[in-house]
Design a protein around this nucleic acid. Sequence first.
DNA 1: ATATTTTACTACGACAGACGTAGTACGACA
DNA 2: TGTCGTACTACGTCTGTCGTAGTAAAATAT
Lengths: 117, 117
Amino acid sequence: MIEISSDVIRGYNDTMILFLLLKEPSYGYELSKQIKTLSDGKYVIKETTLYSAFSRMEKNGYVESFVMEAGEGGKKRTYYRITDAGRNYYNDKCEEWLLTKEVVEQFIMEENSDGNN
Amino acid sequence: MIEISSDVIRGYNDTMILFLLLKEPSYGYELSKQIKTLSDGKYVIKETTLYSAFSRMEKNGYVESFVMEAGEGGKKRTYYRITDAGRNYYNDKCEEWLLTKEVVEQFIMEENSDGNN
DNA sequence: ATATTTTACTACGACAGACGTAGTACGACA
DNA sequence: TGTCGTACTACGTCTGTCGTAGTAAAATAT
């Protein structure tokens, strides 16, 4: 069973998080579940990776946090909202992705489906 | 000008090198030029990255080195040859790439060509 | 009523790969 | 004779990921 190595995904954790935040502000636990769902279970982000991404991105001004006190919605949480800088960063990353894909694919041989392995 | 960040490519430097070694054994300087050419100038691997990839892959048994003494071909060089383990690793990485692509693309919005940025 | 699981984090340290800087050395070419 | 291209090695820094551990409140099970 092939698994996605973290070295590959490394450059895209932030992008994935920002993509989800484009729709609405959210918080760690929720985002991790959404990433798992959207990737069809193929990628599960580690908690520490996720939370360190938050603080890095907040430091860089890509997201802003606010605390939602415990109440109807559940328990106390720290929500993150994407900023304009975050949206720009996200768009840049999407462009970069297209470029990266082009480049990497010059070096990839897709196997024929001859069942020969 | 968008550049490919090393965090993205991180997981594929070894793969790119192995791809080129599938055809024939080669050495650092030559490979770096081939990577630049094949990527259409979009990716230039750093020397230190390349040579540390060699030693890592040799340690892992993905490549074997041999020295070509100075002579007709040019000056003394260390060539690398891909091994069977290297070929397997390469194939795994290609499969992994397909998976990774699928996953990442769930989180990428390709811009419409409305010239709006 | 109490125990366990799920939710929602924080802290800390280790590790791997990329990269900056520097330096060596040989050959070609001007 | 000097500079440029070739062909490396060594060393230390940085960044992002991840393992481990711990806290604590809410939800659920027993």
